Computed example of a mutant assay.
Amino acid sequence: MVKNKSTTIHIVLLLLVIAVFIWSVIKPAGYLIWTMEVLPAVVVLIIAIATYNKFRLTTLSYIIIAILSIIMFIGGHYTYSKVPLFNWIKDYFDLNRNHYDRFGHFLKGLFAIVIREIILRKTPLTKGPWLFAITLSISLAIGALYEILEWLASKVSQGGKASTEFLGTQGDIWDAQWDMSLTLVGSILALLIFSKLHNKLLRKKHESK
């Protein structure tokens, strides 16, 4: 019964993500920048779907993957520096930039829970300080890798419009450092807030086998 309920939730999440994906691909700001922005989410989704029967994650992990995918699809549709809601926030609070990119990198810290699950289920590592430290390190490494890929895309395309929008610095020379710092903060908060719930879901998953 619990398994059927979980499967239903997973299907609903998938349908929601597909709906946002379809909306995202309809008349985006540019198809090249759209592809660059949504590709990481599409790759993760393909892996999650392909491994669903052999290595089914907890519902919490799938919710996180769905949220992050939607965040990236929205960013791909408008470009991260032009998301309307955050343009309104920028104008209303007289900010110097659109902060959707920063918001997205902060939320990417949630992925630490997915990393934590894979480590717990696929390695001998158990709960404790080392799990926290290694999960945090991998999360930050992924964030840093993303910044390197953004920089490489800019170099390869020699500063074209798509690469400039993909890089999304909005004139801030410390943008990469801000992005990585926010991912780090988001990861720490995700682990502190959701680890107990995650442990409970992992126990239920183990008991249902």
Rank of each mutant, 00 (worst) to 15 (best):
78 Y>R: 14
79 T>Q: 15
82 K>R: 12
84 P>G: 12
86 F>M: 03
86 F>H: 04
86 F>N: 02
86 F>W: 07
87 N>T: 06
87 N>P: 02
87 N>L: 05
88 W>C: 15
88 W>F: 14
88 W>D: 12
94 D>A: 13
97 R>N: 09
97 R>D: 04
97 R>T: 08
98 N>A: 06
98 N>E: 01
100 Y>Q: 02
102 R>F: 15
104 G>N: 00
107 L>S: 02
107 L>V: 01
109 G>Q: 01
110 L>W: 00
111 F>K: 04
114 V>S: 01
115 I>P: 00
116 R>H: 10
117 E>V: 01
118 I>M: 14
119 I>Q: 00
119 I>G: 02
119 I>S: 03
122 K>T: 09
123 T>W: 13
123 T>H: 05
124 P>C: 03
125 L>M: 11
126 T>Q: 14
126 T>A: 08
126 T>R: 11
126 T>G: 12
128 G>S: 13
130 W>F: 14
130 W>L: 06
131 L>A: 01
132 F>K: 10
132 F>H: 04
136 L>M: 03
138 I>A: 01
139 S>E: 03
140 L>Q: 06
141 A>T: 07
143 G>D: 04
145 L>W: 06
146 Y>A: 11
147 E>D: 05
148 I>E: 06
149 L>I: 13
149 L>R: 09
150 E>G: 08
152 L>V: 11
153 A>W: 12
154 S>E: 10
154 S>Y: 13
156 V>R: 00
157 S>P: 11
158 Q>T: 09
159 G>R: 04
160 G>F: 07
164 T>H: 10
164 T>Y: 09
166 F>I: 08
167 L>C: 07
167 L>T: 13
167 L>H: 07
